[in-house]
Design a protein around this nucleic acid. Structure first.
Lengths: 343, 343
DNA sequence: TTGAAAGCGCTAACAT
DNA sequence: ATGTTAGCGCTTTCAA
């Protein structure tokens, strides 16, 4: 049960002062190479490494980023978490995870906890936030970025895909594919992603002189999405949609399964399905889902960049609201305009 | 840009000493309710909360658990991470994430970093570890638990499903299902999960006077698994397997897709497929995969329990090697013995 | 019960 | 270039 090795012990063994040891481990400090050598030798003999927490205390920077996340069940998030964590690691930061339920009280509680850890920044993935809390963080000087959510709170940075544009693209694609009865299965309406996707979808439809033929709520959940699909597609052929935009891939899989395995409908022959996210299973042959890609890499890059610039120059950094455009990935789950081929 | 509120400021406002403030926020310390009230009032007016890092320094306990993880692409891990984080949060701990590549050097580096954060414990998910590093942590008094991996290092705690027993069950199930040519698609052989699953599978087969008809390497990766499936099933009907155990679900999906969509084979009529893990897509109707369930909840519970007992009583706590049994979840991807029904 | 004081392991002036 | 000193914000003796 060896004890913790401190810089003082290293100093004694190397025959230098404790601050000399500190300097050796501080990039850009002034130490002679002779001292440095002695110290490094002593340090490695003792197995010494600086205590990050102690350093954090004196510098007032923990190099910890708090990540608040509500659920990992949508496969877009694991992907994101992995990329985010990697990107942050490269900058010398690490991610401290806080799971929370999507209720105001929970979120507020969790935010307090996060702040207790003196994090240098916070990423909220798919979690809404009270403006109270927002200003509390601003006071504490801790930058927040909303990931995959945007909110109309002043001075809050958010990074999303361009959900409005995405909704528009899908509407266009479906109309060009000569669909007659275009439906929508919505996500949870508390989410800006849901609202923006639907708004873009409807707007584009309207511009083309069309409108939504049917709409059900899927709430971003498998079971609810299944129920929505059953309800929407139980009618006779002429009375049911021949195309449906499902607000995310996670629900789209559930919808496709109901269509094919419960209702005996063919996709895309009887009904076209389009999703949103482009998570891994979307490209699996069983689903082969046409979907809007959320560019996780780009979104993570923006997030890290925003965080870093706020940390490095709190005064100059301006809040930003980034909406990243992505391609519509055309696969086989939806009929396409004549000239196109499916992937 | 409000500054950090310290216990000293609270003390001044409440007209008490700084240590009185500390006591109020220390469960089980002796303070009169009069003092406590004054302090709490001042604290909430100022928005004071104790600095966890400072507390960590003096107590030598950070209430941070380091999680080392190699990839989140197997859907078993997001699930695990969510549950683990929640369970730990309930105990007042939080998870600091370290992503790493599966190479010895990387892992060692990451472990050093982790130790720098003075974590109270470490969970390694699907990551192997040198015995060097193991003893380094033991020296530092930091308990480690290997999650979903076991290693023959003395004194190391590991929590897995009972992979050997799982392999056996699958062999039995396949033989009872009257399969003639039973094949295996292996995972990465560096993983104990792969080795144990295969060992149990082979042992049971042998006891029944049978053996593996064909074997390919899938390496736990989608593309490699696809290639394995193509190679294994390109032969004529009599020369190819009529059943295959794929070492995890992630690969099993890829295999099923190749079987159905590339090779035009029916599952389970032409070939039965069984996986391992029971991740969410396994129960989706498109796959409806028969698979061994890994009981994530139980595994997480054991992990947290092991961690807590080592933290609370480092002396008494014994290393444990837990292998949690799980059920074979029978769905539609494999032919079953006559009397059974599929789910 | 309460305050004063020491100290957790480190960094950052300040002097030399 | 290097040592000395003063904290970072807190918990925990030790006296009172």
């Amino acid at each position: 049960m060896a004890e913790k090795v401190t810089s003082l012990q290293v100093a004694e063994r190397a025959g230098v002062s404790q601050s000399a040891v500190s300097r050796v481990f501080t990039p850009g400090a002034s130490v002679s190479s002779k001292t440095a050598d002695k110290v490094r030798k002593a340090a490695s003999e003792l197995g010494y490494r600086p205590n990050v927490l102690a350093r954090a205390m004196v510098k007032g920077k923990s190099r910890i980023i708090g990540l608040v996340v509500a659920y990992l069940e949508n496969f877009f998030y694991p992907e994101t978490l992995e990329k985010l964590s990697n990107a942050l690691q490269e900058q010398g930061y690490h991610v401290l995870v806080f799971m929370t339920k999507q209720t105001a009280q929970n979120i507020d509680d969790v935010m307090e906890e996060i702040l207790d850890y003196q994090v240098d920044g916070i990423v909220m993935a798919s979690v809404a936030m009270s403006s109270d809390i927002a200003s509390r963080c601003q006071q504490a000087g801790v930058p927040i970025v909303l990931f995959n959510r945007s909110q109309d709170i002043d001075g809050i940075t958010s990074v999303t895909s361009d959900n409005y544009a995405g909704g528009r693209k899908i509407a266009q694609f479906l109309v060009e594919g000569e669909h007659e009865r275009i439906a929508y299965i919505a996500g949870w309406d508390g989410a800006s992603t849901q609202r923006d996707r639907e708004a873009g979808f409807r707007a584009a439809l309207q511009e083309m002189g069309r409108e939504i033929f049917a709409r059900e709520e899927g709430n971003f959940q498998t079971e609810t999405a299944r129920a929505a699909a059953r309800k929407m597609f139980s009618a006779a052929a002429e009375a049911r949609p021949d195309a449906v935009f499902v607000a995310n891939d996670h629900m789209a899989f559930a919808v496709m399964d109901v269509l094919r395995h419960e209702l005996g409908l063919r996709v895309p022959e009887d009904v076209s399905v389009v999703g949103y996210d482009d998570v891994p299973p979307s490209s699996w042959p069983s689903y082969n889902l046409t979907t809007m890609r959320q560019r996780a890499n780009a979104m993570v890059e923006e997030t890290v960049d925003a965080l870093m610039s706020h940390i490095q120059s709190p005064e100059e950094a301006r809040p930003r609201r980034v909406a990243i455009d992505g391609p519509l990935v055309v696969r086989g789950s939806a009929r396409v305009p004549n000239e196109q081929k499916k992937a």
